[in-house]
């Protein structure tokens, strides 16, 4: 009898990775000059990408931008027309058997069919054997616990709901403890509850030092757990930066400040701050400012206002989310 584990415990037991090392000199995945053409159409064009251990990289872009083609090339399911892919420093080639390298990769595509004639347990056991997983039994229980399918282990895969199937697909993808996990639109078509469950699992995996590349159209989810964001457009990676940097560079920030005292005094105090770009008087005691700087800078601004003796009643710091940044980018493309 195997005692049930919490997802965090399960993943901690299953984690083969050392603690996250964002400064690791060797990327888990490195792509150079990656190009894929279908006839005259260039799906991916001269793309460079580095993913470091424990990095969660969110890939966004409009339909047809080349995200799926890129992912397929990165896992070896598609041959690049040109370019090189290195997994843990070793070149990945589709026409060569390289078991060591293939063990490092887990891939969950957008539309993932399951085998109808197997039960959940048989299905996972099959893939665990394919990948030569040791201590299979306990590993399968851990994984089933993580994806909350333990009670369904004897059910046929046809009997599962869409969300369960998606979780089973993810379980299959991580059963061999890959160091690189590539997820293509893993939450598409799921209801909000299933999406939330899926997001929790990804967060648990994130804690296990896996390098994750994930694409999704639900950008709020990506903003929740991605450390880096890449934006693809017409086969190019037009933007690739840590999420914080992206917000700082591209997201407009606003601070709503209300005082119990004099609005003019507040305005004067704000005018002395370099991070404040513009001010808009909302009412006699309320001002909205456009702000440039991170959370710490906003904190410093609040501190300085209080130190100056201003009776601050309300201080709300907001910024544009990832979706707005992306939509602004699309608008720009349409205009241009």
């Amino acid at each position: 009898m195997v005692s049930p584990l919490s997802p965090a415990e399960a993943i901690a037991r299953s984690s083969p990775q050392p603690p996250p090392d964002l400064n690791s000199p060797q990327p888990t995945l490195s792509a150079r000059g990656l190009t894929k053409r279908y006839g005259r159409k260039i799906a991916v064009n001269d793309l460079d990408l580095d993913l470091f251990p424990s990095e969660v990289y969110g890939l966004i872009g409009p339909n047809g931008a080349g995200k799926t083609t890129l992912m397929e090339m990165l896992v070896g399911a598609e041959t690049p027309t040109l370019g090189e892919i290195l997994i843990n420093g070793e070149p990945l080639r589709q026409d060569q058997d390289n078991p060591q390298l293939q063990r490092c990769i887990g891939y969950l595509p957008d539309d993932y069919p399951l085998y109808d004639d197997l039960t959940v347990w048989q299905y996972l056991d099959y893939f665990a054997r394919l990948y030569g997983v040791t201590q299979r039994r306990s590993r399968l229980y851990d994984i089933l616990e993580l994806v909350q399918l333990t009670s369904k282990r004897h059910s046929r895969t046809t009997e599962l709901s869409r969300g369960m199937k998606q979780r089973l697909g993810l379980a299959r993808t991580i059963v061999h403890q890959p160091s690189l996990l590539v997820l293509d639109e893993p939450v598409s078509g799921l209801d909000p509850v299933a999406r939330m469950e899926f997001r929790d699992i990804i967060k648990a995996l994130q804690a296990s030092a896996m390098t994750i590349l994930i694409s999704s159209h639900v950008l709020s989810d990506l903003a929740d757990f991605c450390s880096t964001i890449g934006i693809m457009e017409l086969g190019h990676l037009v933007e690739s930066a840590p999420l914080d940097e992206l917000y700082q560079r591209l997201s407009r920030q606003q601070i709503f400040i209300a005082t119990l005292g004099d609005g003019a005094e507040l305005s004067e105090a704000l005018g002395r701050h370099n991070a404040v770009i513009a001010q808009t008087q909302v009412s006699a005691q309320e001002i909205c400012v456009e702000f440039e700087g991170d959370g710490a800078a906003a904190g410093a601004l609040l501190r300085s206002l209080i130190t100056a003796g201003l009776p601050i009643r309300q201080f709300n710091h907001t910024r544009e989310d990832l979706e707005t940044i992306f939509l602004k980018h699309l608008d720009h493309k349409q205009v241009s």
Partner: peptide, 15 residues
């Protein structure tokens, strides 16, 4: 047709 062969190809097992 179902695209499942790709997953076998990507596994460490030899063809």
């Amino acid at each position: 047709r179902r695209g499942t062969l790709n997953f076998l190809r990507m596994s460490p097992q030899s063809s």
